[in-house]
Every structure is written in C-alpha cells, then in structure tokens.
C-alpha cells in the first residue's frame, strides 16, 4: 500500500500548491487560466472513470454535463432553490441520467463504437429536446441573475471559483485514487480488459459498468453546474453540443487513460497549447479544435499510454532498442 500512500500524499500536495496560487497573485489572466485548466481537468477526470478505468468510450459526455448545467440553472430560476442545494441535485440528476443510459446500453451489451455512437445520439436527442421544451428556455437559453455571494455560489473574483473547482478536482482525484485501490476499481478494470474472464471470477460486468457510468455522470454534472455558476448562462448548444464531449475525452486520452494524473496533465497541456495558439494566431475560430485533433493523433501514434505513461513508453522503447543491439 506504499504506492497508494504516495499517491495520496501527491494529491494533498497538488491541492495545497494550487490552493496557494490565488494567495500569491491577483492576476486575472493567471487565475482565469488556472480555473479553466482545473475545469477541463474535472471534465477529463469524469470521462476517465468510465472511459479510462471502465473501457467504455463515450462520445457524448456532454449529456451529463448539460443535464447538470440545466438542473443547476432551473432549480435556482424556477425552483427558487439555493445554489448549493441545486448543485447536489445537479450531481444526483446527471448520475441518474447516467444510470438510465447505462442500464439501456449495457443491458443490451453495447460496447466499443456502438456504445460511443449511442452516447453521442443521446446527447443529440437531449440537445434537441432542450431546444424544444419551454422550461429550458429553448434556443434563447437560461440566464442566471448575478447575485455575488457565497450562499449563491457566485464570487466577486475568480479566486472563489478557483477554490470551488479545485474542490471538485480534489474530490475527483480522491475518487480516482479509490478506484485504483478498491475492490470495485479492480472489478471495473477487469471488466474493461475482458468481460468473459471477469464473469469467470464471479464479477457481474453489467453492475460494475453501471456503477462507473453513474460516478462518471455525477462528476460530469458537477462540471456542468460549475459552468453555469461561472458564466451564468446556458443554452442547448453549450450544454449538449459535442464540444464538451470532445474536450473531456481528448484531455483524458492525451493525458493517459486509466491513470490518476493523466486527465489533469492532459487538461493542463491542452490549455497551455490553446493559449499559446491563441497568442500566435489570434482568435481564429476553431483553431483550438485543430490543435486538439493534431495532438490527439500524435499521442495515439507515438504515446499510446498518454503523457502520464511517458516513463513507461520510454522504458519499453529503450528496452526494445537495447534488446536489438544485444
């Protein structure tokens, strides 16, 4: 368990370091960068639970993001509920949507690209529903009135949001750590690797995958709720459009699927890249997607284990070349 202890210490060190940033600087640029990178890390961590540990590649994680975002907005606007209570409902609601989609698709044995397409379709269906029903504000979207106070989960400076999203990321890191060291996590990885063999040792793949999509969906819903609190606006395109789904999965794959730090690393690298290109090319529309695509292709070709697996990849290359010489 020493490796587990080291990882826990790493998580606490990371949280402590990042928590120090708002104390050290008032720069809006830096705080905004930290906030957006942590937010991207949260989405990637959510995707990583189902995609990285469970091997179920979702192309429609916006489904959970959007559900969380809409619940967060509607509970406050139409329910008159407190923002923190709304957050609780957003997480529970998107976890519930995860259970529904998971039950439907895993019950009928959908895997691989079929599962990916079904999640994509669900996200699109929800996007069209959000465009058509009145309580989501349809195409106009929903606007959250500005009332900056802690009770409203709205903060005067970016610092409050940095702490809020850092708390989510810390929770996601601890959840991932638990997956790496718990029986449920072992079952999940076993199911990812081989469902038949998992059954042979008495593991029920359906139940295990359902648990993973619920956890993943709930975390993604927290990301959606956070988005609404920061930007005070949501519409069907932002909520259920493919952009969020792509961002979550690219960061997780680039960083390293099924690892503790991969999603955080991937989110950080992609945000640095996105900011650099914005400085180089200005606000060329869609340029960040072009960069994401190129990075994804390069990573899949040369670093299949992602940035977090860089050490292992280098080691095996070294061994291979050494083996040839020997």
């Amino acid at each position: 368990m020493t490796s587990g202890g080291k990882e826990l210490a790493g998580i606490f060190l990371f949280v402590a370091l990042v928590a120090g940033i708002p104390l050290a600087t008032d720069s809006g640029v830096i705080l905004n960068f930290v906030m957006m990178a942590l937010y991207a890390a949260l989405l990637a961590q959510a995707w990583n639970i189902l995609g990285g540990f469970g091997g179920q590649f979702s192309f429609g994680h916006a489904l959970f993001f959007g559900t969380g975002a809409y619940i967060q907005a509607i509970a406050q606007l139409q329910g008159g509920l407190n923002a923190w209570l709304a957050l609780f409902m957003a997480v529970a609601g998107s976890a519930g949507v995860g259970a529904l989609v998971g039950a439907l698709s895993f019950r009928y044995g959908l895997k691989g690209s079929y599962f990916a397409l079904v999640t994509l379709a669900f996200a699109e269906v929800f996007r069209i529903l959000a465009l058509s029903v009145p309580f989501t504000g349809a195409g106009v979207g929903l606007m959250l009135p500005l009332h900056e106070s802690f009770a409203n989960m709205q903060f005067g400076s970016r610092k409050g949001y940095v702490y809020l999203v850092l708390a989510f990321v810390a929770a996601a890191l601890l959840l991932t750590w638990w997956l790496k060291h718990s029986r449920f996590g072992a079952y999940l990885q076993a199911v990812r690797d081989n469902e038949d063999a998992a059954r042979a040792i008495g593991v029920n793949p359906f139940g295990v995958k359902l648990g993973a999509i619920v956890l993943s969906g709930g975390l993604m819903g927290a990301g959606g709720a956070f988005y609404v609190q920061v930007f005070q606006y949501i519409d069907p395109g932002i909520a259920y459009g493919p952009g969020t789904s792509v961002e979550a999965l690219v960061a997780a794959i680039v960083g390293g699927m099924g690892t503790l730090w991969g999603p955080v690393l991937g989110a950080l690298v992609l945000h640095v890249l996105a900011d650099l290109t914005r400085n180089l090319f200005g606000q060329l529309p869609g340029i960040n997607m072009v960069i994401y695509g190129m990075v994804l292709v390069l990573i899949v070709m040369f670093l299949p284990r992602g940035i977090a697996g860089l050490g292992a990849t280098a080691k095996s290359l070294w061994k291979k070349s050494g083996g040839r010489r020997g």
Partner: peptide, 8 residues
C-alpha cells in the same frame, strides 16, 4: 482462449 486481464 487465455482470457486474462491484459492491462493489469
């Protein structure tokens, strides 16, 4: 068919 968990 040698069903092990390859990534573990």
């Amino acid at each position: 068919g040698r069903k092990v968990f390859p990534n573990l």
